[in-house]
């Protein structure tokens, strides 16, 4: 079932014409949308052709960007939301949901994206942050948001602000899965701790944890009750091979985002198919092995080591 704990702006559930009882933008509709993406793969794309390859490969959604994360790293400068034309082209040419990124805290980019017809907005550290002290108050929007987190505190603060879905930050554009693994493990360990105190009904300790994580007591209790994040949580940042995707699913992710990994390889279609297979059937060794055989490691993006000049994951609070 869908967790309904969290602040909700009563103005948000506006009535739509025709039927007096109809509502849009409710917590159930926004979190529910993310629930429909579970066990699936969301692929970064920069043009219509890539979006159609993603759809053909069985992706559950595409994320439209101006540049892939590795290109953002290489080009330097300021990275902003994608152009309206390319977003609209993709929206009009695939049948699966379309997402786009806005800068952290950039309310106006988010408003523009909401009007462009995208189905979900990613408040993303891949772009240059617009606000260093605040993220967007996401309850004000009808369109659901996904946000990145590297630990449980960030995840619960984003949910508190109205994020309908979370993802690990990982380290985008590196081809290196280690940071996504680190972030998922950190979240799992903290959730296990909270679940323990919830089962003990140690409310004082849960309250102490809520102060430590700078989030509400209510959300900490809900996390303990569920034994997981109260919203859908995907892996993102550095996933490159089918085996990477299967690894993240084994760690408890609900699905996978793949960024530069597909279109920066020299076998994008095979790789897209293979990553989708390995995500869905991550529990079956034979299928993961078969998926891994569909790709060629010599064609994987070379990636970046751990001597990075700057880390995208350090953006956001």
């Amino acid at each position: 079932m869908i967790s309904l704990v969290g602040h909700q702006n009563p103005l948000l559930s506006r009535q739509i014409s025709g039927n007096i009882d109809s509502k849009t933008g409710t917590i159930l509709l926004k979190r529910g949308f993310a629930h429909m993406l579970k066990h699936g793969v969301i692929m970064d794309v920069t043009d219509v052709n890539q979006a159609q390859i993603a759809e053909e490969a069985g992706a559950v959604a595409v994320m439209v960007l101006d540049k892939l994360p590795i290109e953002v790293r290489q080009s330097g400068g300021v990275a902003r939301t994608a152009g309206m034309k390319i977003i609209k082209d993709v929206v009009n040419n695939v049948s699966i949901p379309v997402m786009a990124k806005c800068r952290i805290g950039h309310i106006s980019e988010a408003v523009v994206l909401e009007n462009s017809g995208v189905d979900m907005i990613d408040e993303s550290e891949v772009l240059t942050p617009a606000d260093e002290s605040s993220h967007i108050w996401k309850w004000d929007f009808t369109t659901p948001f996904v946000d990145g987190a590297k630990n449980l505190g960030q995840a619960l603060r984003r949910i508190e602000e109205g994020a309908s879905m979370m993802r690990t930050k990982g380290e985008p554009g590196t081809g290196n899965v280690v940071e996504a693994v680190r972030h998922m493990r950190a979240m799992n360990q903290d959730i296990a701790k909270i679940t323990y105190f919830y089962n003990q009904q140690d409310k004082q300790e849960l309250f102490r944890i809520s102060k430590e994580l700078n989030t509400s007591y209510e959300l900490v209790v809900e996390t303990g009750r569920l034994g997981r994040l109260p919203v859908v949580n995907f892996a993102a940042g550095g996933i490159t091979t089918p085996a990477d995707a299967a690894l993240m699913m084994k760690l408890g992710c609900d699905g996978v985002f793949v960024g530069s990994g597909i279109y920066k390889s020299s076998d994008p279609l095979e790789r897209a198919l293979a990553i989708v297979l390995a995500t869905t059937f991550h529990d079956k060794v034979e299928v993961v092995a078969e998926a891994q055989e569909m790709i060629d490691e010599k064609k994987s993006m070379v990636g970046l080591g751990d001597n990075l000049d700057f880390k995208m994951q350090d953006r956001g609070i």
Binding site: I16, N19, D21, S22, K23, T24, T26, L28, L29, G32, F33, V91, S95, P97, E114, G117, D119, M120, T142, T143, P144
Partner: peptide, 14 residues
């Protein structure tokens, strides 16, 4: 498919 609209138009009704 999606004939009631995209996510922005998703709704609940009785």
């Amino acid at each position: 498919r999606n004939a009631f609209g995209r996510q922005h138009e998703s709704f609940q009704s009785e």
